[in-house]
Nucleic acid binder design. Structure first.
Length: 932
RNA sequence: ACCCAGGUGGCGAAAUCGGUAGACGCGUUGGACUCAAAAUCCAAUGAUUUUAUAUCAUGCGGGUUCGAAUCCCGCCCUGGGUACCA
């Protein structure tokens, strides 16, 4: 008999909701805070990739509850972001509307999966009650500087006091301001001068940085919106352009972000990812004389340039110097005849191959008189954040070697091997040395002596650009008075994102520039009409750029602890109760961006005393992605022509440049062919397009990729749970493979889970009637149960959820064969399965006569009494590494006796075939191997 | 290009400490039940040939070891990230 999932699942979902089963309070119990990475409510709804994370965390949350923990398992939405804005541009529907619709849809879908979220704590980043505190935190970041001596952020007021007292002589800060000044000089500076110096100390500061500028669309593009140097929409060219932007001085925290990794439990690969992203580089900087000095924009002559060397001991092997295209002098360094091609190179967006360009200019070698070293511009190397220039040593560095090969640059050998020792030669004052350490010391000493360099530790991590020229984000609470930024008083927060009608970009500015009421009245402390901006008196323009979506998602996990607090973002009591996230589950794709930003943000809040923990997450688990095929067709750029994929390399088509356009899956048949008529109907703007066919059909390019709405390859869970039931869907998704591994979606195998659930149901039913026996179980039945209990707790420790389901299948099969329907066996089994299949187990629990939800029951622990104490050891017996037979021995028997027994075994004689034994290997309790 | 994963039967996978490769499931084949089908149950199922308690098998090529899916070196392929998708 099959169980009626439709009725049962609905009933329990209503029951959980009605009784607020998952609402969490700060009770006197051990706490456990489990969190899913913040979802973005996309218009396509929830897809099975998200579900994997929610199901995993739900299983764990239910498991932890059954162990007696007070589990916090909240959910909310990262509801600001680009897709909603794009949609608004296309349809003119306000993002506010679409976002709230999408959230409703998500909530419904999630609830249909039986996920035990505490919805009473729901937060949305686009809710003014939430972004009130995002804005507040931004102002705090703006009003802080980083003191390197005490390794923490401090109030800017302390810095100002210090400047007034001693100038900046004793200040050791993270700053781009390099000059020293006295208190006298400081006190005589104008407000504008003071503010522009302070800006270089603030943790949120304005400065110019490079963005992807698309002149035809009049907007800055995300990297995601660019393909082969052109905009995805329309295929327009994209350039690199410098724009004034807000930045967060995240580089100040590089060292602490690196050190803090020690305290996070996660995979080594995630730690690697993070530490590579932070990119600590130790070495030395060297200041070179430029052969052809350059004239900068303000007509100053620049004769020197700074570069980084990772291994100073190999300085005599240097054969080129590279500047990144973002180096402040990259545009000026080239000699006049090469100027044009170099500028051209810099303007193009980043090329992902080994690319670079010679500037025609050189530097002089610091230790070899008159030796000229060529200067290149390239983005092939990973540059540190400060110097943006690197010294190439092809003989001792793989990347330099590849680069040198590409551009035909000389190699200079500087050491040779002698008796496994490296001896320096060709190296001036280092010749004859055999220790890298010593050589390094000598070089650095020499650099210091000549005042042209020193040791240095720098980081690759760059300060994060914080401005977006977009509408759908948190307004930056800053106004400009005589071009100097001022923070809006915190008691006037939040400043609410104004409603506008036209979402199109406005020549590189945010659409907010059109807001009619977007000026700050300083005297009356309120937002007023922009018409009244008289600039020098009382009313000033408010910043029109908005915050990036990572702003709101950098601290949301704190808000869940105290979501309804109107006085502060988090109270001390609530923080002391929940402390930090115990388990953070989310995709590996967030391993850099989000995880770096939120750790930075967290450390800042700690520095300023608003929270107590150094790291926000105790343990991070990355779920693998669920991949699915996406389909693209080739369109000729600037022409209304599509060509079949196989024709791409045909002679006649080779001169065209193409753009790949994603198409919806329903337009493609199983052979990768596009239904052209249906395509034209779906996209009327392409109605007159011409299609070049191959062999009478139009072939698409297909690719296995992560699911994403923009790729049209998302699979929605709704139809699966409708057809099979939620419990089956949950189990199936987990059964697909290890949680951490990415996998390809395929729903063909779901039958196996369906069979399992039916078998499980039938353990309790005979001819459709619920029937459980009260007879005392046999020792074998107890053994099976306790063995399963044991292995499930073990596997839970390392999240091997797919094999736990295998264990369930095994025990259900065994009990079915034994026709066991004994309460004393089945009740614990129901409790074990409950976190995985919550609906069917609630139903059975209820039928077993229990009054309270199974959620309140304790998960069983195994009892040694029922587990066979093994008094025998099973040995596989191998001959020349091949298994031939298996023998069991008494645990107490000696190795000598085993050896004797095996030697005299008739099978031994059989396998030896008259040959003699060369070696007998026995690894106690493991294996016996006989070599002959 | 760089960084991080992954690659095991027809398919999803298991083997968590270097020790019996393929647990569990899907699919396929055969059988039982049935007038028949579905469902269910039972059995077989890595490949090869000489059918032997044979040989070969964990992306490819080497190495370490009595023993390697697992460790080391060099490749190939797939996926993710590369700083404005989230």
């Amino acid at each position: 008999m099959e169980y009626n999932y439709q009725e049962i699942e609905k009933r329990w979902q209503i029951y959980w909701k009605k009784n607020n089963i998952f609402r969490t309070k700060e009770k006197k119990k051990l706490k456990y805070y489990i969190l899913n990475m913040f979802p973005y409510p996309s218009g396509a709804g929830l897809h099975i990739g998200h579900c994997l994370g929610y199901i995993t965390s739900d299983i764990y949350a239910r498991y932890k509850r059954s162990q007696g923990y007070n589990v916090l398992n909240p959910i909310g939405f990262d509801s600001f972001g680009l897709p909603a804005e794009q949609y608004a541009i296309q349809t003119n529907k306000h993002p506010f509307e679409t976002t709230s619709q999408n959230i409703k849809k998500y909530k419904n879908q999630i609830n249909n999966l039986g996920i035990s979220f505490d919805w009473s704590r729901k937060i949305c980043t686009s809710d003014p009650n939430y972004y009130h505190w995002t804005q507040w935190m931004f102002i705090q970041i703006y009003n802080s500087w980083y003191d390197k001596d005490s390794e923490k952020a401090k109030s800017i007021n302390l810095l100002i006091k210090e400047f007034q007292k001693n100038g900046n002589f004793y200040v050791n800060a993270s700053t781009s301001f390099e000059k020293k000044f006295s208190s006298n000089i400081w006190n005589q500076l104008s407000v504008l001068e003071k503010e522009s110096i302070l800006l270089k100390y603030r943790l949120a500061y304005l400065s110019k940085s490079v963005v992807n500028w698309c002149p035809d669309l009049g907007t800055v593009l995300a990297n995601d919106e660019i393909e082969n140097g052109r905009s995805q929409r329309g295929g327009f060219p994209v350039q690199r352009k410098k724009m004034k932007q807000w930045h967060l001085r995240i580089s100040a925290y590089a060292n602490r972000l690196l050190k803090g990794l020690k305290y996070i439990e996660c995979s080594d690969s995630l730690k690697n990812l993070q530490s590579n992203w932070i990119g600590e580089l130790t070495g030395a900087f060297v200041v070179f004389d430029i052969v052809y000095p350059i004239y900068s924009k303000n007509n100053k002559i620049i004769k020197k340039i700074k570069s980084f060397i990772h291994h100073p001991e190999y300085i005599f092997g240097m054969s080129f110097v590279v500047l990144s295209s973002e180096h402040p002098l990259s545009k000026e360094i080239a000699i006049p005849s090469d100027q044009k091609k170099v500028l051209n190179f810099i303007q193009k967006t980043k090329n992902k191959n080994i690319s670079g360009i010679f500037t025609g200019n050189y530097v002089f070698h610091p230790f070899i008189t008159d030796q000229k070293i060529p200067i290149f511009i390239s983005d092939y190397f990973s540059f540190d954040n400060q110097i943006e220039s690197i010294i190439g040593i092809p003989c001792n560095d793989k990347k330099s070697e590849k680069f040198a090969n590409e551009f035909g640059i000389n190699f200079i050998q500087v050491n040779f091997c002698k008796k496994s020792q490296k001896i320096f030669f060709n190296s001036g004052f280092l010749n004859g040395l055999n220790s890298n350490k010593e050589a390094k010391k000598k070089v650095i000493a020499k650099l210091i002596e000549k005042k042209i360099g020193n040791k240095i530790t720098t980081y690759k991590i760059r300060d994060a650009i914080f401005s977006r020229q977009r509408y759908w984000g948190e307004p930056i609470p800053i106004y400009f008075k005589n071009k100097i930024p001022y923070a809006i008083p915190i008691e006037k927060l939040p400043i609410i994102l104004p409603k506008i009608e036209n979402f199109h970009p406005s020549d590189g500015k945010s659409p907010l520039i059109r807001a009619k009421k977007w000026a700050w009245d300083e005297k009356n402390m309120k937002i007023v009409s922009s018409i009244n901006i008289d600039d020098k008196k009382n009313i000033f323009p408010i910043e029109t750029d908005t915050m990036p979506s990572w702003a709101g998602s950098s601290w949301y996990y704190l808000r869940y602890m105290d979501p309804h607090n109107t006085k502060f973002f988090l109270s001390k009591e609530k923080e002391n109760f929940w402390k930090k996230v115990d388990l953070y589950i989310g995709g590996y794709e967030h391993g850099t961006g989000h995880l770096i930003y939120s750790r930075f943000w967290h450390k800042f809040l700690k520095d300023r005393g608003w929270i107590n923990t150094e790291e926000p997450f105790k343990k991070v688990l990355n779920q693998g992605m669920i991949l699915n095929y996406s389909y693209k067709i080739l369109k000729v750029i600037d022409k209304n022509i599509f060509i079949s994929y196989g024709l791409k390399n045909k002679e006649i088509f080779r001169s065209y440049s193409y753009q790949e356009i994603y198409v919806k899956t329903n337009l493609i048949n199983k052979k990768n062919e596009l239904d052209i008529n249906l395509f034209k109907k779906t996209y009327p703007s392409f109605y007159d397009s011409y299609f070049y066919l191959e062999n009478g059909v139009f072939i698409c390019k297909n690719k296995l990729e992560k699911m994403s709405k923009s790729k049209y390859n998302v699979v929605n869970p709704d139809h699966i749970s409708k057809k099979y039931g939620v419990d089956i869907f949950r189990l199936y998704e987990i059964f697909l493979g290890p949680v951490t591994q990415s996998k390809c979606w395929d729903d063909k195998k779901i039958n196996g889970i369906k069979n399992f659930i039916n078998k499980f149901w039938n353990l309790f039913h005979k001819n459709g009637v619920f029937q459980v026996s009260e007879i005392y179980p046999s020792s074998k039945e107890y053994y099976i149960l306790h063995h399963t209990i044991n292995s499930i707790h073990e596997k839970m420790k390392y999240f091997s959820l797919n094999t736990i389901i295998s264990s369930f299948m095994i025990i259900v099969n065994q009990l079915t064969i034994m026709k066991c329907n004994k309460r004393k066996i089945l009740e614990p089994l129901v409790k074990l399965i409950a976190p995985f299949a919550p609906h069917i187990t609630e139903e059975i629990w209820n039928k077993l006569g229990k009054k309270k939800s199974i959620i309140y029951s304790k998960i069983p622990m195994s009892n040694i009494k029922y587990l066979n104490k093994k008094d025998k050891v099973k040995y596989p017996i191998m001959f020349n590494n091949k298994l031939k037979f298996v023998e069991s021995f008494d645990k107490n028997i000696s190795i000598k006796e085993i050896k004797n027994y095996i030697f005299n075994h008739y099978k031994t004689k059989l396998f030896l075939k008259k040959k003699t034994i060369k070696k007998f290997i026995i690894i106690p309790n493991k294996i016996i191997n006989i070599l002959f």
